[in-house]
Design a protein around this nucleic acid. Structure first.
Length: 567
RNA sequence: CGGGGUGUAGCUCAGUAUGGUUAGAGUACCUGGUUUGGGACCAGGGGGCCGAAGGUUCGAGUCCUUUCACCCCGACCA
């Protein structure tokens, strides 16, 4: 390609609303252009990057025996009613009616569609396993799109679904997909981590997210400093505390504690570690048809992880409650405790099993219980409720956990029979009995990856594409096109590189040196061959975008040197 | 969905408190010339329904009402 013919509208200024590096540079360098909130046009350079990433995904999927399909973007609403997700997704589904008034939904993900495709076509265990995927535009009417391509409403996603006769076979495929996803991200040149995750409202198990490490990431992940363990904070675990603070010896009695309401006050009052206080977090759990107040009990030294809490009571969501609402059901804010109080649904953090010497609320204004033994409680529900903290022990080794930020670029998990049951997708097993498919789902955000690459590979001058993602590998910059010798050499190198299969672009615009250099840096192709004033000394320069270094090369060696760099 | 902000040239923004020539700057664009190693210079030029609708007024970019869009914080996000 020639810059003189290319549609690469670069700008000096970024749109005023762009915050993220990827948003700023992808826009300034002419890769994408915003159309409306959360909607983007891909310009030629952006489209090339997208295709690069897609090609790598296709290649790895081929290797893993997954087959590509393409399902229609407009999907019948009946399918969503069948699975029950038309309500769960809610307003995120963009609904529309055709001329006959039939209701349709723009596909935000395609579980239903894929199950629908396979059901009644795959009818025997002999036809399994099957792994089908597509790379397709999705639409989710996000309440608040932001961060450019990172959280767009319309985006490109690779979504794959596998079908199995047994859970064991699903496990095998799941591992194979994890390995394939890992290779994809390695080939893209990204620093990432595969972490344990919550599977969300969709249900399922074995949930893992692929996180590209970046400060701008929207997810907090806890990673071990010495082993491979990593988990989204929504699902992270920690080693059971082995070195608990020494247990205080306080009599089991009701103690007058005027105005001692917070955990800190309580710990000070009794001169104990917050570890031995019982924290009660009250929330209103919202269910499809009803709602109720739930109390979550944790050690005072822990914080409630809300996603875990939602899962523990299988609620749609948790909302805060006011002191008035608590009083209305007979609770005493600041002094809530589990003893003598069985009317309210309560869940205890699993770390409280058999806890002794605890200080708890006495359900009476200005009173606490000291030296309480929680094992005295009957019929207690335990669940993981705590949020891991930095410094907590790794659950798998002696290391400790630290927080880092990640961009979720992939999410894989085992659906089991959730959808096959809901949509009655069954096959006959070797006993001739009908069974629902065991399913896995494997998503990867292709357009989000474009942004993720730049989040991880940029500097103050612009993009720094990895070799695997760069729209072109080499830029030939002819400093002054009026200088015939320069132009001629540029054209010669351009032809030779093209003939050798190198993705090359020549900057043959009638612009000054500085202007073209700024563009080269902003666009961020890996190498720029500078043909300029050094030509009269028989030299050109090769500018390495990653290091910003320019190295002199003899004209005769230029071609070979570049070919060597690209290997 | 709650709270806040902004809509004026392709882009980034002045101008709006206090209504009054022909609505401005920078940048980008076109023409000519000079220049050619870090977004150059000189001269000339094109480009605007001041987000939209309604209203007040002799007169509205500016005041009032309604509305739409975009952005930020939060809630939400298989």
């Amino acid at each position: 390609m020639r810059f003189s013919k290319a549609f690469i509208p670069t700008t000096k200024e970024a749109p005023s609303d762009a915050v993220l590096a990827s948003h700023i540079y992808l826009t300034r360098a002419g890769f994408v252009a915003q159309v409306a909130s959360g909607l983007y046009n891909y310009l030629p350079l952006g489209k090339r990057v997208l295709k690069k990433i897609e090609a790598i995904i296709n290649d790895e999927m081929e290797r893993a025996d997954a087959q590509e399909v393409e399902l229609s973007f407009v999907t019948p609403a009946e399918l969503w009613q069948e699975s029950g997700r038309i309500e769960k997704f809610g307003k995120e589904l963009l609904r529309l009616r055709d001329r006959k008034e039939n209701l349709f939904v723009l596909g935000p993900t395609h579980e239903e569609m894929m199950v629908n495709l396979v059901r009644n076509r795959v009818t025997s265990y002999k036809q399994l396993p099957l792994n089908l995927y597509q790379i397709k535009t999705k639409f989710r009417d996000e309440a608040r799109p932001r961060f450019g391509l990172m959280r767009a409403r319309e985006f490109v996603m690779k979504d794959g679904y596998s079908f199995h006769a047994t859970a064991e076979d699903l496990d095998r495929e799941f591992d194979a997909m994890e390995a394939a996803y890992k290779r994809i991200l390695e080939r893209l040149g990204l620093d990432f981590r595969i972490v344990e995750a919550d599977s969300g409202a969709i249900g399922g198990s074995g949930s893992k997210e692929l996180m590209v490490i970046a400060d701008s990431g929207e997810d907090t992940i806890a990673v071990c400093d010495s082993c491979e363990y990593g988990a989204n904070i929504e699902a992270a675990h920690r080693r059971v505390i082995s070195s608990a603070p020494s247990e205080p010896s306080l009599a089991n009695e009701k103690v007058h504690t005027p105005d001692v309401r917070t955990i800190n006050d309580l710990a000070d009052f009794f001169k104990i570690d917050p570890h031995y206080t019982l924290k009660a977090v009250a929330k209103r759990a919202i269910y499809e048809e009803s709602d109720e107040i739930v109390i979550f009990y944790l050690r005072g030294s822990d914080e409630l992880q809300e996603v875990k809490a939602v899962n523990a009571v299988a609620a749609l969501e948790l909302v805060d409650v006011t002191e008035e609402e608590l009083e209305a059901v007979g609770l005493v804010p600041g002094f809530i405790g589990p003893f003598g109080q069985n009317d309210i649904t309560s869940v205890f953090d699993s770390g409280l099993k058999g806890a002794t010497a605890m200080i708890t609320g006495a359900n009476e204004r200005d009173y606490h219980m000291s030296g309480a033994d929680l094992s005295a409680l009957d019929g207690v529900t335990f669940a993981d409720l705590y949020e891991v903290k930095e410094g907590d022990g790794c659950p798998h080794c002696d290391g400790s956990l630290t927080y880092t930020k990640g961009i979720e670029v992939g999410h894989i998990f085992k659906l089991g029979t959730t959808y096959s049951k809901a949509l009655k997708a069954e096959f006959l097993n070797d006993q001739g009995r009908a069974e629902p498919f065991e399913m896995g789902t494997y998503g990867m955000g292709v357009s989000r990856l474009v942004a993720a690459v730049i989040e991880q590979h940029h500097d103050e001058k612009g993009c720094r594409w990895t070799k695997a993602t760069a729209p072109y590998q080499v830029n030939i910059m002819v400093s002054n096109i009026k200088d015939e010798a320069q132009l001629e050499l540029g054209e010669t190198l351009y032809s030779r590189l093209k003939e050798s299969g190198v993705e090359v672009i020549i900057d043959d615009r009638k612009e000054r040196f500085g202007f073209k250099m700024k563009d080269a840096e902003l666009i961020g192709l890996p190498y720029t061959i500078i043909i300029g004033k050094e030509l009269k000394n028989g030299k050109i320069q090769i500018f390495d975008r990653a290091t910003l270094e320019k190295s002199d090369v003899q004209v005769e060696e230029a071609f070979e040197t570049v070919m060597g760099l690209l290997k």
